[in-house]
Amino acid sequence: MIRYSYQLSDFRQWLRGFSRLLHVPAAPGYLTIPRDLGDGSIRTAHLPEGISCVVMNFSLCDDLQLVSEATSTPGLSLFFNQIKASDIYMVRENGHPCSDRNHRGHLLLSSTAGRKETVLPRNSRLKGVHLYFPPSFLRHRVREDVLSDLFRLADGSRPTPNPSPSNADKSSRISMRPNHPIPSTTSSSKTEPFCWPKNFFPPSSSGPPSPISTAKHGQKDAKKTSRP
């Protein structure tokens, strides 16, 4: 069995450690699994404000045990699982099995506050996208009441009901800037809203105009033709 124990803080660092464990050299942010160990690849990326992500699609010829050790300042991770339905693997959190999280297509929210163990039998495939949100991002970009509910969900507890919004809550807003298609909820008294860089997303492909834009152009043309 291959056992990889780590403390998650950045997926680029995670990949470097996994590369050393397998004794396989990795290019910056990219690892190809050699044929004698399995198949597939792992790719990582660094996003603004310390967020990192990993795209995994690989299989090993040996059993794999991934052990995420608890951290003193926990962050949150979100895993978009796309594992094949025929594959079998087991997730344990703090020593307890989580059988309801072993399904294809589920979203798994977890925190690094507790120890999590994932065991994959040989020749099973790990396929999905994993996002990590560091503590610094969570403190500056997420409201305290929302953050506490997210950690409760990550621990398997139900969030507490929200009371009626106060004046401070009403000042919160979703802000959108031109060329920055990802909104974020922030308080008007705090730092500037989190925005993606302009060149992060590829330009939209040219396609047929939307019904809304077509209707607007049609109204303008009608007004122009109605003038004497």
Score class of each variant (00 low, 15 high):
residue 199 N to Q: 14
residue 52 S to L: 04
residue 65 Q to E: 15
residue 43 R to H: 07
residue 39 D to M: 01
residue 33 I to V: 15
residue 48 P to F: 00
residue 26 A to H: 08
residue 6 Y to S: 00
residue 58 F to Q: 09
residue 18 F to Q: 02
residue 130 H to S: 02
residue 34 P to R: 06
residue 172 S to V: 06
residue 187 S to N: 13
residue 13 Q to R: 13
residue 86 S to R: 07
residue 5 S to T: 14
residue 8 L to A: 02
residue 7 Q to T: 05
residue 50 G to W: 05
residue 70 A to W: 09
residue 155 D to K: 04
residue 144 E to F: 02
residue 140 H to P: 01
residue 174 I to E: 14
residue 46 H to C: 02
residue 58 F to D: 09
residue 159 P to E: 08
residue 110 S to W: 06
residue 227 R to K: 14
residue 187 S to Y: 14
residue 98 C to V: 09
residue 82 Q to S: 12
residue 184 S to M: 08
residue 200 F to E: 04
residue 110 S to F: 09
residue 11 F to H: 15
residue 111 S to R: 02
residue 149 D to Y: 15
residue 132 Y to T: 10
residue 17 G to P: 04
residue 166 S to R: 11
residue 68 S to Q: 14
residue 167 N to H: 09
residue 206 S to C: 03
residue 207 G to Y: 04
residue 150 L to S: 11
residue 5 S to W: 00
residue 135 P to A: 01
residue 16 R to H: 10
residue 68 S to P: 00
residue 80 F to I: 10
residue 166 S to W: 08
residue 185 T to R: 14
residue 102 N to T: 13
residue 112 T to E: 04
residue 202 P to G: 02
residue 57 N to S: 13
residue 192 E to I: 12
residue 5 S to M: 05
residue 59 S to Q: 12
residue 49 E to H: 05
residue 77 S to Y: 05
residue 49 E to V: 01
residue 129 V to L: 15
residue 196 W to K: 06
residue 42 I to Y: 15
residue 33 I to E: 06
residue 85 A to N: 08
residue 52 S to W: 04
residue 172 S to Y: 15
residue 221 D to A: 09
residue 33 I to A: 03
residue 206 S to G: 02
residue 165 P to K: 04
residue 30 Y to F: 15
residue 89 Y to K: 00
residue 97 P to Q: 10
residue 107 L to G: 11
residue 199 N to H: 10
residue 156 G to F: 10
residue 83 I to T: 07
residue 209 P to E: 10
residue 133 F to K: 01
residue 105 G to W: 00
residue 105 G to T: 00
residue 116 K to T: 10
residue 31 L to H: 05
residue 54 V to A: 15
residue 37 L to H: 02
residue 202 P to Y: 14
residue 51 I to T: 02
residue 197 P to F: 08
residue 111 S to H: 07
residue 61 C to H: 07
residue 98 C to A: 12
residue 211 P to I: 07
residue 183 P to H: 03
residue 155 D to I: 03
residue 198 K to A: 13
residue 73 T to V: 07
residue 218 G to W: 05
residue 184 S to A: 11
residue 58 F to S: 13
residue 94 N to M: 06
residue 9 S to P: 05
residue 112 T to F: 04
residue 12 R to T: 11
residue 63 D to E: 10
residue 12 R to F: 00
residue 28 P to Y: 09
residue 77 S to P: 02
residue 109 L to G: 05
residue 225 T to H: 10
residue 202 P to H: 12
residue 149 D to R: 11
residue 207 G to F: 02
residue 82 Q to K: 06
residue 146 V to L: 15
residue 15 L to D: 00
residue 52 S to P: 05
residue 184 S to H: 14
residue 211 P to L: 08
residue 104 R to H: 13
residue 51 I to G: 00
residue 94 N to L: 04
residue 43 R to Q: 12
residue 220 K to M: 14
residue 102 N to D: 10
residue 204 S to T: 06
residue 84 K to V: 02
residue 67 V to R: 07
residue 154 A to G: 05
residue 47 L to D: 01
residue 209 P to W: 03
residue 85 A to I: 12
residue 206 S to R: 15
residue 36 D to I: 01
residue 208 P to I: 08
residue 101 R to F: 15
residue 90 M to S: 14
residue 30 Y to L: 09
residue 147 L to C: 08
residue 58 F to N: 12
residue 15 L to S: 01
residue 50 G to Y: 06
residue 140 H to E: 07
residue 170 K to G: 00
residue 181 P to M: 01
